[in-house]
Design a binder for these strands. Structure first.
Lengths: 267, 267
DNA sequence: GTCCTCTTCC
DNA sequence: GGAAGAGGAC
């Protein structure tokens, strides 16, 4: 038996919107600790890991762990039917093959419920090793999204290099080359404008821009994004969901030796 | 050696956006007097002449005249990467085959640079004769753009006739006919709303609306547009760029005798 | 693929 | 509050 009530229901919609272009079907796992989703994207290049803590919910009850396989496109359709201020309640039976979403308008004058069919999905539960990252950059999510979008109009890949002074994004293509440097800034008036760089050692990694721009769909979820990098290991792009959990993306860097347009290594 | 720093960097973007649909590639000429661009549109019907004075720049240095051939589509891509408040600096070496654009955010916490490849373009440097125009109409740029857009949904050509009382725009098509008359108004409270007609003798000329609507992409550059006309000569459509220079378009009138759908004479 | 709406940024 | 870009619908 699962029952979870979330006042800030629009959160769910943003999470699903951020992920549905990368993964078409996924298992959403529920346990007493909350909701989580872990999946490779459809082209098996990047990895998505989402967690919403049980305590983020107004009411949360999950008698025993369950895994609910869903079409994320369908899930997105259902969540789109919720008003932006609606309170969302999820319900599922332990052995059912459906999950029910209930939407209540804040004024309580409208209640809708949607029953979504579940499906069996082979889950490849990849353990994500806890890494000690060499460089962690926290910057305004919107600014980061803008940079990814701008650079993707110039080139296909980006080199992200973190030094103590700042983080530099570099790309090149037919048009020419482009560099964007964002300086560390821990003293901005508004906390939203701050950029913080936590560096053990400088690192420079190359990534496919199309995945980074896709990850950036999560921008509405958070004011800041955190890029955590270590040489030759996947970058972790994290959007912290205010007091609730996180949405993390992992993408392996392109290794310079094998860049014969052979494209896209899995993490 | 070229180095030019422009605080109001968004200006450049507006100029390029206004022109890029008419000319795909163009030479941008730089000399100690500033930047200029002169080109026929792709279909060789209209002529574009832009000038930005050296004194419009915060810092301007151009050791010897140079001509930089660019894809305006690529230039537009690069300029789109500038924030709307960014300070723009251009740099080029005398014999280089690239030009570098540097964008600095006002708070100086983000710096980007874009290197754009230059190309060889045959320039047909047409002298534009200084004409004594019979009629000069200065009117709000937005109002003029609206008229062009509205009329182009009715017909393909417009007759612009200037008399001492006002300027009349006439078109007709399958739908019917349309006339828009704008009266001289030199006493409007706001200077932006004024329309001034300077007339030596009345004149009425016929133009292809598709070019006029295309020219009107320059509207964001200026509060007013000036139409200068003389019988049987090209109209000059001028957007004065505040304290900086101008963007002028020239379009030959359709001559009534030969209007057997023979379309589009060059100026 | 195009149009229209919605959101976001100015 | 308006315009431009992104996303959704037909």
């Amino acid at each position: 038996m699962l029952e979870a009530r979330l006042v800030q229901g629009s959160m769910l919609r943003k999470v699903v919107d951020a992920v549905k272009d990368l993964v078409s079907d996924a298992n959403i796992d529920v346990s007493s600790s909350g909701f989580s989703l872990q999946a490779m994207d459809t082209s098996h290049v990047s990895l998505i890991a989402m967690h919403l803590r049980a305590d983020a919910f107004e009411h949360f009850r999950c008698d025993r762990p369950m895994s609910m396989g869903m079409s994320l496109a369908n899930l997105a359709k259902v969540l789109k039917c919720a008003g932006s201020d609606d309170i969302v309640t999820l319900k599922a039976n332990d052995d059912g093959d459906t999950v029910t979403f209930m939407f209540e308008s804040p004024k309580e004058d409208r209640v809708s419920d949607f029953e979504l069919k579940l499906m069996d999905i082979d889950s490849e539960h990849l353990g994500i090793p806890d890494t000690d990252y060499c460089a962690t950059v926290t910057m305004p999510a919107g600014e980061y999204a803008r940079i990814c979008k701008d650079l993707s109009s110039i080139g296909d890949t980006v080199v992200i290099s973190a030094t103590k002074d700042g983080v530099k994004f570099t790309t090149s293509g037919d048009v020419g080359t482009a560099n964007v440097t964002v300086r560390q800034n821990t003293t901005a008036d508004k906390k939203e404008d701050q950029t913080i760089i936590d560096l053990k050692e400088p690192v420079a990694l190359t990534f496919a821009l199309r995945y980074l721009t896709s990850f950036a769909k999560a921008t509405p979820l958070a004011t800041h994004v955190t890029l955590s990098m270590t040489r030759e290991l996947p970058v972790m792009v994290e959007y912290a969901i205010q007091d609730m959990g996180h949405l993390r993306f992992y993408l392996a860097p392109k290794i310079e030796d094998e860049d014969m347009e052979g494209e896209d290594e899995a993490p």
